[in-house]
Design a protein around this nucleic acid. Structure first.
Lengths: 201, 201
DNA sequence: AAGACTGTACCAAGCATTTGCTTTTTGGAA
DNA sequence: TTCCAAAAAGCAAATGCTTGGTACAGTCTT
């Protein structure tokens, strides 16, 4: 008998990773129609499966939702940390961070974070706590930058409130921004940064 | 024949309009659990009815959603126009308008506008067009004020973008603000106005 | 004044479909 | 052969909505 390769499943690198495909189409559908508005038959048919097949990959429909959100958070966190680590003045970092978040929300195929933002009501309380714990790390990164901006005199008032307002404005873009419209994401980020940053003269 | 079969009909309050009550509990439930997450049975039992009874007042469940949104919009529009009409400098008006909108979203029992803001995915395309047409009048009022602020040098960049960002920040409060927390609505409005208004020196 | 009619606001029961999920079976790759 | 990933079939519950009936207040007719 050969070495016991427990847990470390081969996870074929080739294209036939149907679980990821399931997550991708689920995120898209959840974003468009909401979690409760999306049936597992919607999901499975969008993935080209029969209605019971997704349950091989996920125990429950709720687990799909959690997986979508956690995958989105993981990727968003990575992008956010990347920007935060740049050796730049905080005003420039804010603009880049806003731009990155806009991409995370609005770029083609980025449906994972929007599901988190707009469909958290679909989570059971237990799962909500799990997801919120992850999201808190996200928020903490923003908070550090905003604290820094405030110390430098670029930001008024309560720093935590400022973070909530700024992130709110950015996250809300998902409800109105349409690709191919009047403004590019760069222009939106530029405008937002100008709105939020107190001109220090 | 005796009076043996006399079903007790407790409720005989002629004044209380059950249709309005239906709208009120529906708005509350829609806000908490979403439109698709709320069943007719949830609604009717919250209103003390049997499951088929709401259909006397509304043809479909979707019609309840539309009615909730339209009622919310009508009231919000009224409050907004009230503030806009005040003879005050635009900077003060912005603060008052933000405060009014915060109340519309966050005050106890004000679930109508939040349903509009967070559950518009539940609308059929036709109904969405109807509701959006109403909402456009709402936005136009804000836009006029923001145009004015920009002409006075209090607001940078694209005025329409500024409106979307500001309203986004305000509307997003519904996802995080909890009554009895660290900040009052007055303080939130004050902080938001300071964040958005360019200090003109 | 008595009875007939009308409109309102539900109740009671249930129908047709959809839903999330389970169980068993099967074809193909390792 | 064994294991994986999905097909095939279906179940029990939930869902939106319909139907028919009932109690009762008010109105109209005679």
């Amino acid at each position: 008998m050969s070495v016991a390769q427990r847990k470390v499943r081969p996870r074929r690198n080739n294209e036939s990773n149907r679980r990821d495909e399931l997550l991708r189409v689920s995120a898209k559908l959840f974003r468009e129609k909401g979690f409760d508005g999306t049936s597992i038959r919607d999901i499975s048919s969008a993935a080209g499966m029969h209605s019971g097949s997704p349950f091989y990959h996920f125990k429950t429909k709720q687990d799909i939702l959690v997986a979508v959100m956690e995958q989105g958070l993981a990727e968003g966190l990575r992008k956010t940390e990347e920007v935060i680590a740049l050796p730049l003045p905080p005003e420039q970092k804010l603009k880049l961070l806003i731009r990155a978040q806009l991409g995370t929300i609005l770029d083609e195929g980025n449906d994972f974070i929007p599901v988190l933002l707009y469909d958290w009501r679909g989570l059971t309380p237990a799962n909500r706590r799990r997801v919120v714990a992850l999201k808190d790390r996200y928020d903490a990164l923003w908070q550090r930058l905003i604290d820094e901006l405030q110390r430098a005199g670029h930001m008024p008032g309560d720093a935590q409130l400022m973070r909530l307002l700024i992130l709110g404005a950015v996250n809300w873009t998902g409800t109105w921004y349409r690709t191919g419209g009047r403004l590019s994401l760069d222009e939106v980020a530029e405008g937002a940064a100008r709105l939020f940053l107190q001109a220090r003269r």
